[in-house]
Simulated scan of single mutants.
Amino acid sequence: MEFNLEPCADEALPENQRLAAAEDLVGHRITAVIPDCSGPKARGGEMLIVTETGCWLVLRPDDDGDGPYITVAGAHAFSRTDAEALSDFATAGELLAAGLITKAQHDYLRAEEKRQEDDRNALRAAALRAELAKLEGANHA
């Protein structure tokens, strides 16, 4: 009797990507958990689970009236084509405290966070100045 062995399907774990379901954690080793993460895409109260391969899962507490429960954040709207990074859900300080980045990486991410914050503040200031000019124009008319 003769037979050929077929190579097994590649079962390598994904790396550096957001996981879409709790079941996707199977086989991963969890290296960090950040409770109440506060990155720009976090909505508050979320928990971030980070694996050894750099993958992450965002869990969100919910309450549907029947009682509290935990869901995977964005499970229905999430698509693997979304360009998201771990730093979208945790701040540079949170990532450093969890031991996920170096001090140099923290400094780089913090500078980027500061630039984005400055951009948002500039937009708000411009909108407020425009509103003030509009109100002053109405008062002089």
Rank of each mutant, 00 (worst) to 15 (best):
I49A: 11
S79D: 01
G99S: 11
P35Y: 06
T102S: 15
G44P: 03
L96D: 05
P61F: 10
I101A: 15
I34E: 11
H28A: 03
G54I: 00
S38I: 06
A111L: 13
D62V: 04
A97T: 13
P68F: 14
K41V: 01
A83D: 04
E117Q: 15
E2T: 09
E2M: 11
L95H: 04
S87F: 00
R115Y: 09
A77T: 01
F3I: 00
N4G: 09
L5E: 04
D10P: 01
G74P: 03
E84R: 01
C37M: 09
A21Y: 01
A111F: 08
V72T: 12
A133W: 07
I30M: 02
M47A: 15
L100I: 09
R43I: 07
R115M: 11
R120D: 11
P7S: 10
P40L: 04
P35V: 04
R18N: 00
L5K: 02
A21E: 03
L100R: 10
A85Q: 04
L86F: 06
Q105C: 06
Y69M: 07
A138E: 15
N121Y: 08
L5F: 04
E23C: 05
T31R: 12
E84Q: 08
D88N: 13
G54T: 01
S38F: 09
P68K: 14
E112L: 08
I34T: 03
C37H: 05
H106R: 14
G99W: 08
D82V: 00
G27C: 07
D66R: 12
T81Q: 00
E52D: 13
S38G: 13
A125I: 10
Q17T: 01
E15C: 09
T71V: 05
T51D: 07
L48N: 03
T81P: 00
A12N: 09
